[in-house]
Nucleic acid binder design. Structure first.
Lengths: 204, 204
DNA sequence: ATGATATTAGCACGACCGGTCGGAAGCTAA
DNA sequence: TTAGCTTCCGACCGGTCGTGCTAATATCAT
């Protein structure tokens, strides 16, 4: 690992932390360079453009996500436990990976939903890939009899992402202490298991 | 209505549209002034600070939201229909109000979740108020026997917001054509009614 | 050790940011 | 008519932005 690669890794680590706090628009060169003890252009030489820096940061965050959230599933029992494990780790993965602030991917969603470009494209692909992972976990849980037969994996993944999003809102933005309990209760309801306390639900 | 108030309204209309596209960070004075045919400082005289402009824009958007989403509920049958009506209007209210882009409140959530200030404070209050409205609608639906007795309105509101968030992601960002159907199916499941097609759900 | 080549730093440019100021219009009331 | 106030403009401030160019430095094969 050459020195250049090492510096690049240092930069990207700081960049991901910055993106967690201020999003990808907050990835400004000068403050980032100051953080890693470099000048703006010394940093600039590694990427060539702001967009390339954003993409590289996104990529680095995705690797962290893969390692912290998805990969540990391999050692879990297949089916619902594995799915639940991924969801649980997904909830607090930034803190779990030593990152400040909130999930940077969600920041990217609102920052790039109206402006096309390489970052948006990459982010869409990342979400699509992860969604596919979730769908496979759901399908596996169905095969194991942990979820009702006929469950639509796409629909389930949609609602699972909904829960993660609501958690981001309730915990990160509203700072609601009951956020985690609410989200876990919602997951239990989604998975069809009775939550500890009687929660939401309609007439059958 | 004096001339000052009229220009102020013109500015805020354009400001809300801008916020739908670029968020509240994108509320820059010069481009906004150009849009309404004024100079930066002429516009500035109406608000006094950027933060005040953001708050005023938020307020104006909230009035639009109230008029377009909440108010029409008064003429709907009480209970679940009223709740469902609010949810349906909530889904596409920016387009319905003639606004481009996406719901500005969601943009504000990620822009202000880590930086305190007047805008964040106001946004939290808006969300809290709307959440209370939803909870009352849920409680009413329970009293009408449209939702299962014992349904926790807070939990229901949490999951309803989750669905709206997922819709924002799937429709606005991922541009998934199936987004609306997925969201409606999820609402049907949340409300405990059978969706048209077999959707997500767990083992009973 | 030496020369070739990555890699990094210094520096400057043009554009844009939020914000300030003095003054020129236009409206209102006496 | 005239005085006062609201409204708006144009010029300008200090900063920061992304982006290049150039020189110095570190790394590595020979």
């Amino acid at each position: 690992m050459g020195k250049g690669a090492r510096t690049r890794a240092t930069i990207l680590t700081a960049a991901v932390e910055t993106a967690c706090l201020g999003g990808f628009d907050g990835l400004n060169l000068k403050p980032l360079a100051d953080r890693v003890g470099m000048t703006k252009s010394g940093l600039y030489a590694h990427f060539g453009s702001k967009e390339a820096l954003q993409v590289a940061t996104l990529e680095h965050a995705a690797e962290l996500f893969q390692a912290r959230v998805v990969a540990p599933a391999k050692t879990e029992p297949a089916g619902l436990p594995r799915l639940e494990g991924v969801f649980e780790r997904w909830l607090d993965w930034p803190a779990n990976a030593g990152l400040p602030g909130n999930c940077p991917f969600f920041a990217g969603v609102v920052e790039f939903d109206d402006c096309d470009g390489a970052v948006r494209e990459r982010l869409v692909r990342l979400f699509r890939d992860f969604r596919q992972v979730v769908e496979q976990l759901v399908a596996s849980a169905v095969r194991h009899g942990h979820l009702r037969p006929g469950t639509d994996p796409g629909q389930f993944a949609h609602e699972l992402l909904a829960l993660r999003y609501a958690h981001h809102w309730a915990q990160g933005f509203m700072r609601d202490p009951a956020a985690l309990a609410r989200t876990q209760a919602a997951f239990a309801r989604l998975a069809g298991r009775a939550p500890r306390e009687l929660a939401a639900g309609g007439v059958r």
